[in-house]
């Protein structure tokens, strides 16, 4: 009876304290997540600007290399030709994007190469496109075609994917522009 009375008397204080603590933890979490996201986005912008600057200097038949620090395994680089189903922000232009997915791009690429039904393939491609639309930075180019590849052909079990991961290490990306106006970005693991 006495305990109930104490709780009743202090009910308002308890409610205020609980709300205060919730607000405090939410505020701390919010500030940290803003800070982390901002940092990743800043890094992504830096990378796509470096790639763009390198590409803009290329003439037909030339190639170059770019060394850059990555972000983390959820980020990737993906290109779309002007006539492909690309993110809206590409506006029917050949486009190169750096985007953040919900999981490492490698997982999706493995799925895409595992003879999925068309329906699942389309779903994954749509997810990649949405990642770039919602969480990506894109640059448009005048060339008609673009391809992004990530491969490793040195070992006995090689692989070759259509997007480039941007993990937290130093990356060396080869960029070339052929005589047929095709831009190619290649990252060998």
């Amino acid at each position: 009876m006495r305990k109930k009375a104490i709780v009743r008397e202090n009910l308002l204080s308890i409610i205020i304290a609980v709300i205060g603590l919730i607000l405090l933890f939410y505020g701390a979490w919010y500030l940290i997540s803003i800070s982390t996201d901002n940092q990743e986005q800043k890094a992504a912008q830096t990378i796509i600007e470096k790639v763009e600057a390198k590409i803009n200097l290329l003439e037909a038949g030339q190639s170059t290399e770019l060394s850059t620090q990555g972000i983390n395994e959820n980020w990737f680089i993906k290109g779309w030709d002007e006539n492909e189903d690309s993110p809206d922000k590409c506006l029917f232009k050949t486009c190169l994007c750096i985007c953040k997915g919900d999981e490492p791009i490698q997982n999706r690429e493995i799925e895409l190469q595992s003879n999925l039904p068309d329906q699942n393939t389309n779903r994954i491609l749509e997810e990649i496109k949405n990642n770039c639309q919602d969480n990506g930075f894109c640059r448009k180019f005048e060339s008609e075609k673009i391809s992004t590849h990530w491969g490793n052909t040195a070992g006995s079990v090689g692989y070759f994917y259509d997007s480039i991961p941007v993990p937290d290490k130093l990356l060396k990306i080869k960029i070339s522009l052929d005589e047929n106006s095709r831009l190619t970005l290649y990252y060998e693991d």
Binding site: Q39, K42, A43, T46, I47, K50, S67, T68, Q69, G70, P167, D168, K169, L170, L171, K172
Partner: peptide, 20 residues
């Protein structure tokens, strides 16, 4: 040597933090 990507990745096998 910043051009020695392989060496840097071996040295930093746990990852590189910070902004490029």
């Amino acid at each position: 040597d910043y051009n020695n990507v392989e060496f840097i990745n071996n040295l930093c096998s746990g990852g590189i933090e910070g902004n490029p």
